[in-house]
């Protein structure tokens, strides 16, 4: 393995959970719902995936359970904000508090156990391509899912009728409702999709990234994922770019430290955050283009008039 290859591999591992959680949140926000509970859903996914993998011995079952757990947990948010029209920002933050506490409770007996690692699946022929083969086609299942989800979501949003409806709801739930689209039902499904993605992102943390369970192991990645959706101005391919940019700068700064440049580590650690701001400043200067992709009814509650 060459140095460049090794670095790229590290970047993919760091970027995958961000990408998954962000792509899920992107769908949620495209439907007009702002769920700030990503951090909580990731951490629930992580603990349940780990526990399930330990109990069944299968990392795949673990990942599945992690996804299901994230999805179930997001239902709590959906019920409050969609059925009871509670404030979305506050409910999302409360979901994070609950998720961090609950995961600590569930995970108490699993702390310190050696985890089950999700193994790599080499895709025949493709994985032997020089340079990119090992990187792109000899990875774990969650990596493949994360890449697939970008193109899947992109296709769904822009090429299918359902996707069009979902975007319509996000832009103007009133008009969408008038056209006979079921706003609440679609939003429920979107939130659940976001929860499942965040759950899978959590599973990646506890089954691939560092196969173990430790409290608060999401370590703020949910917040970064939220920022990446904004960074991407709600476009799936840009989420891919954003997650990998963030991952690359994060890993790059560690390498810069190891090379011993003598720059205070705090400044290097701040680079990923500054880089995302600067790139966003550059790409969002076109006001019209940005507005076009921003879901206009983001964060607003909807109650059908009868």
């Amino acid at each position: 393995m060459t140095l460049a290859e090794a670095i790229l591999l590290t970047i993919t591992t760091a970027a995958t959970p961000l990408l998954l959680a962000a792509i899920g949140e992107l769908v949620v926000e495209r439907s007009g719902v702002l769920n700030l509970g990503v951090e909580g859903m990731i951490v629930i996914g992580a603990v349940v995936a780990f526990a399930a993998a330990q109990l069944t011995g299968s990392a795949y079952l673990g990942a599945l359970f992690g996804m299901a757990a994230g999805c179930l947990f997001s239902l709590l948010f959906a019920f409050l904000t969609l059925t009871l029209v509670a404030n979305q920002v506050a409910t999302g933050l409360a979901l994070t508090i609950l998720g961090l506490g609950l995961s600590g409770m569930i995970g108490e007996s699993f702390v310190g156990q050696r985890g089950v690692q999700l193994d790599e699946i080499a895709i025949p022929f493709l994985s032997s391509i020089p340079l990119i083969g090992n990187l792109l086609f000899n990875q774990d299942l969650i990596f493949y899912v994360s890449i697939f989800s970008v193109f899947g979501v992109s296709w769904f949003l822009f090429k299918t009728r359902l996707g069009l409806q979902l975007r319509a709801i996000g832009d103007s739930h009133g008009s969408a409702h008038a056209l006979g689209i079921s706003v609440i039902k679609t939003r429920y499904l979107a939130v659940m999709f976001g929860g499942a993605c965040a759950g899978l992102a959590g599973a990646q943390l506890s089954l691939v990234y560092t196969p173990q369970w430790v409290e608060n192991m999401s370590a703020g990645r949910g917040w970064i994922a939220l920022a990446l959706v904004v960074f991407a101005s709600w476009r799936p391919l840009r989420v891919l770019a954003g997650a990998y940019l963030f991952g690359a700068v994060t890993i790059g700064q560690l390498h810069a430290q190891a090379l011993g440049f003598g720059i205070p580590s705090q400044f290097l650690s701040a680079l990923p955050y500054l880089a995302t701001i600067i790139v966003l400043v550059i790409i969002s200067r076109n006001r019209r283009l940005t507005l076009m992709n921003t879901p206009a009814s983001l964060g607003q509650s909807f109650v059908p008039d009868r």
Partner: peptide, 21 residues
Amino acid sequence: VWVNSWFDAGKEADAAKALID
């Protein structure tokens, strides 16, 4: 390599990878 945290399994793992690389 400083990770500027006492406890962040992912970041510590990344630092280890960077050093090994």
